[in-house]
């Protein structure tokens, strides 16, 4: 047991909960940066409080400073991983932003169908898969696009194991299936399970979820025809972004496509991927 007495009073003189000390603030910043690559700058320091106080309470600690003391004093406790997972943003939805999925449906999938026709094989990667909606959206799109009798492999990876466990179940709340999922897909690919909705096995077995830290994605599987790496680069510093883009490009098939989040670009980060605009979507193509 770690002795946590003497870390400080529960309340300060004004009756406020003890504030995170300057040193511990820097410690947490570093800890999250090393553990997941995520940069938490001073404008976002409220995130520590918002995301970690539930852990503080659950562990019967008194403050974020106590939590810091705990992880400084212990090596391999589950809470170390939980802190990293609590600090990542997992928000996602089916067919997020629509435009990249429309680009696939209208242009890219028909192109790949012609190109890969003889082998009838397509490999896709959802590189920050979170709870799986993106990977499963790709799976539904492929079935709708007439790829049923193709050899299809969709990889879904994320740094957070707990979110991947959810992804694998393919079970979503009503709120989640309300968001972004066309109702025609809901009735075709889901069954009702009490208050939740269960993706049918037909879709679930198209996707394989595995833990992967994008910063170590150098020798990943591949090559991939389509990579979705959306709404995760924004959290990293420029060096890490550049390195991840290079790693992705190295597993992208010649002529393969990369989709980034709506607020993300390769400007100043990669010189060889080719920008391709499809309607409202921008994707990047690996030169042949």
């Amino acid at each position: 047991m770690t002795n946590l007495s003497g870390v400080g009073p529960l309340f300060d003189a004004t009756g406020q909960v003890e504030r995170l000390s300057r040193d511990n603030y820097r410690f947490l910043q570093r800890y999250v940066l090393d553990g997941s690559g995520i940069v938490i700058d001073s404008e976002k320091d409220y995130l520590f409080e918002a995301r970690l106080m539930p852990l503080v309470r659950r562990e019967n600690l008194r403050s974020l400073n106590d939590l810091c003391a705990l992880i400084k004093a212990t090596a391999a406790t589950p809470i170390r991983q939980e802190i990293l997972e609590a600090m990542t943003t997992n928000e996602t939805l089916f067919f997020r932003d629509m435009a990249p999925f429309e680009a696939l449906r209208n242009s890219i999938l028909p192109e790949l169908k012609a190109k890969c026709g003889p082998a009838k094989r397509l490999r896709l990667w959802s590189a920050a898969a979170s709870s799986g909606q993106e990977a499963y959206s790709l799976a539904m799109l492929l079935l709708e696009g007439g790829f049923q009798n193709w050899n299809l492999q969709i990889a879904g990876t994320d740094i957070a194991e707990s979110i991947l466990e959810r992804a694998r179940t393919g079970r979503y709340s009503q709120l989640e299936v309300n968001r972004g999922l066309p109702v025609h897909y809901l009735i075709k690919y889901f069954t009702r399970h009490g208050l939740e909705w269960q993706l049918k096995d037909e879709i679930r077995r198209m996707v394989r979820f595995e833990r992967l830290d994008l910063r170590r994605a150098t020798a990943g599987p591949g090559p991939f025809d389509i990579v979705f790496c959306r709404n995760v680069l924004i959290y990293f510093d420029p060096t890490t972004k550049r390195q991840i883009l290079a790693a992705i490009q190295s597993v992208l098939a010649p002529g393969g496509y990369l989709s980034l989040g709506a607020a993300e670009t390769i400007i100043n980060l990669n010189e060889t991927l080719e920008k391709c605009v499809f309607g409202k979507a921008t994707l990047y193509r690996n030169p042949e």
Partner: peptide, 16 residues
């Protein structure tokens, strides 16, 4: 849309 909804849910569906 199944109630309860949020403005985001309405927005996402209108986009579809």
């Amino acid at each position: 849309v199944m109630k309860p909804f949020t403005p985001e849910i309405i927005a996402d569906k209108l986009r579809l």
